[in-house]
Amino acid sequence: MPDSNKMFLDMFSDRERIAHYADGPRRFTPGLDAVHRMTMLLLAEHAPADAHVLVLGAGGGLELKALAQMQAGWRFTGVDPAGPMLDLARETMGEDADRAELIEGYIDAAPAGPFDAATCLLTLHFLDRDERVRTLSEMHRRMKPGAPLVVVHSSFPQDEPARGRWLARYAAYAVASGADPAQTEQARAAVAASLALLTPEQDEACLRDAGFVEVEQFYAAFTWRGWVSRA
């Protein structure tokens, strides 16, 4: 993660601030539980029943728990730069935690694989374009030929006034879902000021530049987009 986004890594390393982490993604990301279910279905189109799945940005463990409960034969390698978030992932997974190897670091810390499938949910928007393509390329290098990848992150028009309008909707949805208005405004301001956000067209290009093919969008909700592709 670039230095400009160190504030986000610091936030995810604060054990008190992440104590109620599970509430946040569901309030800010429309249909998150459905996203996890769709992710499983899209991976299962090509991943075997005993798949080894690479999960980049695994901290918190929400997708790890969901995927483990829906696919009893899958095992996971999860990577995240925030140690406390990985601790939370172990707690979140509960009895399924022994099916996941959790590694503190960025993509370069991930084993060589090759993996049968991979995910990167609510993570790539923390990276600028060059680092995003490099990270995706390193994921591609660790995947079996034809293995499926699912990514979901913030991606929406970046020209004004559309950018500001969509960020306002992002915040409004969170407040309507029960988030604290003051904290939500802080989050909106931080996203607007600190993240190197891309348009959906630019995000699709990143996937292709990293070597992925059959890139298809499967999810769109306010400021969020999701794609499935194959290595």
Score class of each variant (00 low, 15 high):
S154A: 14
E214I: 14
T184N: 00
A220G: 11
S137E: 14
M1L: 15
L88G: 01
E63P: 01
P2R: 12
A182F: 12
L207A: 04
A221D: 08
M38H: 11
A196F: 13
P2Q: 13
A205R: 07
F8W: 15
A109S: 09
P157F: 08
M1R: 13
P81D: 04
A22N: 06
A182V: 13
L42Y: 05
D159G: 12
D96S: 08
M143H: 03
V191L: 06
T135D: 07
A66S: 01
T119Y: 01
T29I: 11
D130K: 14
G78Y: 00
V79N: 00
D128L: 09
L136G: 08
L121V: 03
T199A: 01
Q186S: 09
A117S: 05
V215W: 05
R37W: 13
G164K: 07
M38K: 11
F12V: 07
P30R: 00
T135R: 06
A205M: 11
L102R: 06
V215H: 03
K6N: 15
T135L: 10
S4T: 13
V133G: 10
E16M: 06
V228A: 07
E138L: 15
R132Q: 09
H36P: 08
E131Y: 15
V151M: 09
R132N: 10
F8T: 13
A89H: 00
S154V: 14
E91W: 09
P25H: 00
H20F: 14
C206I: 07
A192P: 09
R37V: 12
A47T: 10
F76G: 04
R134M: 15
V55Q: 08
H140Q: 11
P111T: 02
S137C: 14
P114F: 05
A100K: 02
R188W: 06
R141F: 12
I103H: 02
M1H: 13
M143A: 09
F8Y: 13
Y219K: 02
R99H: 06
A193I: 12
V213E: 15
A89S: 02
T199I: 04
Q217D: 12
E91F: 11
L9K: 12
L197E: 01
A187K: 11
Q71I: 11
T77A: 04
A109E: 10
V152R: 01
R188I: 05
I107N: 05
A44F: 07
A117N: 03
L32A: 02
V151E: 07
H153R: 09
Y170G: 02
Q183V: 15
W227H: 03
Q183K: 13
T77I: 01
D159N: 12
D209T: 03
V175L: 00
C120Y: 02
W166E: 14
